[in-house]
């Protein structure tokens, strides 16, 4: 099975809706470990992404346009990291009109690696990178959108659970040290909202 630009456009709409609904909650969660604007970053970025005029079937160019939407509206580090992940997906799908679902795992892994390099982060530091790593592993060898959606949902929850009681090791949250123990990482929570939005019709993307 494969997905095309039309599927991604519909997926972006679902993520944008989830981001809009989560805005205030995410701002409040980010306010405990960051500067409290993560909900705004996410909402603005996906609103911009869903306002794009799409008339090109090339998946690479669509992912590039998504990346540029985040580059345009946000100069915050999380916005730039998302733009980086989307750019990695653009490179992985350049010149193609359809991508098989079993390639989703590779796209997530490429995004994880590019974001790791840009943010100078490592796995195990309680960040969006850990949740992407869990997603890449959970979706490996799956080719059915329903299976991928369920695996992704579980991976997100397990990842949050695993890291909740560890201190933050990356970004602004790291400065809170021991005080970050017991609190979910805001970037991981943002990713949960995006993933849950994405799979809200029980398919992926």
């Amino acid at each position: 099975m494969s997905f095309r630009v039309d599927d991604l456009v519909a997926a972006a709409e679902r993520i944008a809706k989830a981001a809009r609904e989560a805005k205030d909650e995410l701002n409040a969660q980010d306010g405990r470990l960051g500067d409290g604007d993560l909900g705004i970053t996410l909402d603005k970025g996906w609103a911009e992404a869903t306002a794009l005029e799409v008339d090109d079937p090339d998946l690479g160019r669509y992912f590039l346009a998504l990346s540029k939407a985040f580059q345009r509206v946000s100069s915050s580090s999380f916005g730039t990291l998302l733009a980086t992940g989307l750019m990695a997906a653009a490179k992985g799908t350049k010149g193609r009109n359809a991508v098989e679902y079993h390639e989703v795992t590779d796209l997530i892994a490429a995004a994880r690696d590019a974001m790791m390099a840009r943010g100078k982060g490592e796995l195990g530091q309680k960040s969006v990178l850990d949740i992407l790593d869990a997603l890449a592993i959970a979706t490996r060898d799956l080719n059915d959108p329903g299976d991928i959606a369920e695996a992704a949902r579980q991976a997100v929850e397990v990842s949050l659970e695993t890291f909740r009681n560890q201190p933050a090791g990356l970004g602004r949250a790291r400065m809170y040290g021991e005080a970050s123990i017991g609190l979910d990482d805001p970037g991981m929570l943002a990713t949960r909202h995006m993933v849950n939005g994405l799979i809200s019709d029980n398919s992926a993307p």
Binding site: L64, S67, K68, Q71, S75, S76, S77, T80, L81, A83, T84, M87, A90, K91, R118, G119
Partner: peptide
Amino acid sequence: YGGDVMNFDMAGETVAFE
């Protein structure tokens, strides 16, 4: 400065690709 570095690296990647 951290934010500038991240954004300029992103910009460099974008103009290389595009």
